[in-house]
Each structure stands twice: as C-alpha cells, then as structure tokens.
Write a protein that binds this DNA or RNA. Sequence first.
DNA 1: ACAAAATATGATAACAATTATCAGTTTATA
DNA 2: TATAAACTGATAATTGTTATCATATTTTGT
Lengths: 127, 127
Amino acid sequence: MNYSRQREQIYEALANNIVHPSAEYIYDILKEANSNISLATVYRNLNKMAHSGRIKKIQGLEDRAHFDHNTFEHYHFICKKCGKIYDIPCEVAPEIINKTEKSTGFKIESHDIVFSGVCRECSENER
Amino acid sequence: MNYSRQREQIYEALANNIVHPSAEYIYDILKEANSNISLATVYRNLNKMAHSGRIKKIQGLEDRAHFDHNTFEHYHFICKKCGKIYDIPCEVAPEIINKTEKSTGFKIESHDIVFSGVCRECSENER
DNA sequence: ACAAAATATGATAACAATTATCAGTTTATA
DNA sequence: TATAAACTGATAATTGTTATCATATTTTGT
C-alpha cells in the first residue's frame, strides 16, 4: 500500500473531528476544508484502512456504514431517539469468546456487540 | 394487521426451509414454488413481521439483511469462508447488560452480538 | 350476506449507499 | 530518471430496499 495524501486526510478527519462518521460525512468535511477529494476516494480508503486494521467499520446500525478510528476493542450503543453512537468499553469479551468457542468448536476471530436503547441525555429530555 | 396468504407463505418459507435467508432468497423459493408473489411483498411482510416481533431482522452481516424465525434470544456467528450464519445460544446476556447499564446510565432495550471467524466445517476442510 | 372501509397485492419506478470503470496523476523501485 | 505499481477524481453502474399506484382481498357494521 503506497502513501497517499488523501488517505492521510481521511484518517485525520476520522481521528480528530467526529466520533463515528459515515463515509459521506467525512467527504463533506474534507470538501469544506477546501480539498477537492472525491467521494469514491473516501470510500476506497476507508474500506482499505478497515481491511488493513488501521480503522474499524461499523455496520448494521442504520442503512449506512460508520467508521471508527478507535481500534481498541470496544462495543457500541446506538440511541433510538437521537441516533448517536456511543462507545462502550468491553470487559466481558474473554468470557464470552471462551464460552462460545467451547460450545461450538468455531474459531472466533472477532466479535461485535451493538446495544440499542435510549441514551441518558434523551431519557432526561423526555421528562 | 389483516390476514394475508402471502405473509403466511413468507413465514412458512422462513420457518421451514432455510436458516437465515435474505429477502431475495425467500422470494426465489416462493417464486419457484409456483407462486407469483412480488419481491416488494416479501420485503413489506418481512419488515412488518420483524416490526411486530414475530420474526427477527439481522443486519450488519453483509450488505443485505437476513431474517430469522427464531425470536428466542440468541446471537449469531458468520463464517468468513463459507458465509454461513449460525445461531449461538446466549447465556451471558444479563451480565453484559447489567454491567453496561450501570457504567453508562443508558437504558438498554436490545443488543446483538455477531461473532465472526471460521466455522468447524471450513476449518476441517482446510487441511 | 353485502356494502363500505381498511389493508394488502403485484409491477415497477425511484432511491440511496456503495462499487466499478477509466484516463490521468502520484508514488515507489531499480 | 525511467518503468511499474498504486492512487486519484469524475462519473457511470450496480445493488438492496422503499415508494407509488391501480387493483384485489380482507374485515367490519348493519
């Protein structure tokens, strides 16, 4: 994989600006910051970096994929009201994986947990 | 929600024929079984049944949604080699949810776990 | 049992997210 | 510094899913 200025811009945007952006969101902020980057380039590089493990791809939340620069093992919570995606620290991973590998005979290489419900902010606003 | 012959056919196909089919897969087998059902009807009813809780929608595995007639709480494993989706019984749910609710202050209404790796069959075939 | 209202259907157009294509450009290699 | 490999922007194409709409089926009230 060669160096590319665009890829680094994309990574920077992901790492510094927002929390769990979609490809289009990153495209928008780079576009605004006077780059003439192409949407295809954003998709290409996000997928490439996700593939290489430099970032993480979060799927199954809405209809679009989201990306995360935090590659440290953690989970996600999506709020049904505001749609915001929160990081959830993971402490239970080893138990889950052990149990599951033993009972199934499968080799587990990764796992994702997505919680959904109402975040604190939204449930406070409800009243 | 009124009765509809098509909806029952769709449910039957989901419950009896295959394990975690996509909408299109169900459409194909119903089509083959001489029905002249429409793809739109399949999507409509799968979503409707998922919404009402009669079936479950599984998202975030590939680029398409899959459906599950097993509404009993359980998780999924997707094999990187063959793409097959397996059911994983869940025993750890209460712990995870408790811990997470306490540490975040969020109200968790549901959660999904997707494991991925290599299934037994595929890892045996590898040698 | 029957008319009216509500709900569902098939066919297909529309849509939105993502990927493929391709000519031109940048980066690495020898 | 020339050649090959990788990358880009622009945009066409693809794909999974939803919206539309005229017609058909199901339910409800009398």
